[in-house]
Amino acid sequence: MSTVAIITGTRKGLGRELCLHYLQQGFMIAGCSRGESSIDHPNYDHYSLDVSEEKKAVAMIREVYRKHGKIDVLINNAGIASMNPIPLSPASTALRILNTNYIGTFIFLREVGKIMLKKKYGRIVNFTTVATPLKLEGEALYASSKAAVETLTKIASREFASSGITVNAVGPTPIPTDLIKNVPKDKMEALLAQQAIKRFGNVDDLKNVIDFFISEKSDFITGQVIYLGGVTN
């Protein structure tokens, strides 16, 4: 029986790449984004929604469960970033970032987690960033939202531990995607200089960590945050 996965933020960037990667491995995937689908595949269903819209997210997740009878994997990829010094950051931006990065992750984790509880099996992967442990200036709103995701990951791992559900997080270094296209070059170089391995990450680096987290064999791996590039907390 195929592995059934939900991946959020699948229209572009890393989410799209991950989706194509797991479709190639025979997964049945339901994805979502605020826009229309950019993936046409018989094993892919797309939902146009904002991950922080609770009612729509719940309806999507329950529809996926009704269709497949299970959800094995959740990859909470959807995220937005903002680079701005704190004194110049509007509260509305803080709210928008928290809504997508934290509230969206929370809603999907809660709802998919409840379904996984019934089956006593599940693999949940959340997304954080190296900006959180590196305490990057100008990334307070983004890094703080991901700090919340890290804490959510660690507590959820404990709440779900006795039910065969693992909850982990991956923290990519900058990977050339839309998310960082507007970040000045000198800022990027300064960031890379803080990594143990001083290069941009790539999608394969990320797939490798997620493959590990969602493997059936990784049933003793939970509550962990893995940063790429040798960044440590």
Partner: peptide, 11 residues
């Protein structure tokens, strides 16, 4: 945990 499982079943 039992309550969470119960509620998920009720939903």
């Amino acid at each position: 945990l039992g309550l969470v499982t119960f509620i998920a079943g009720v939903e």
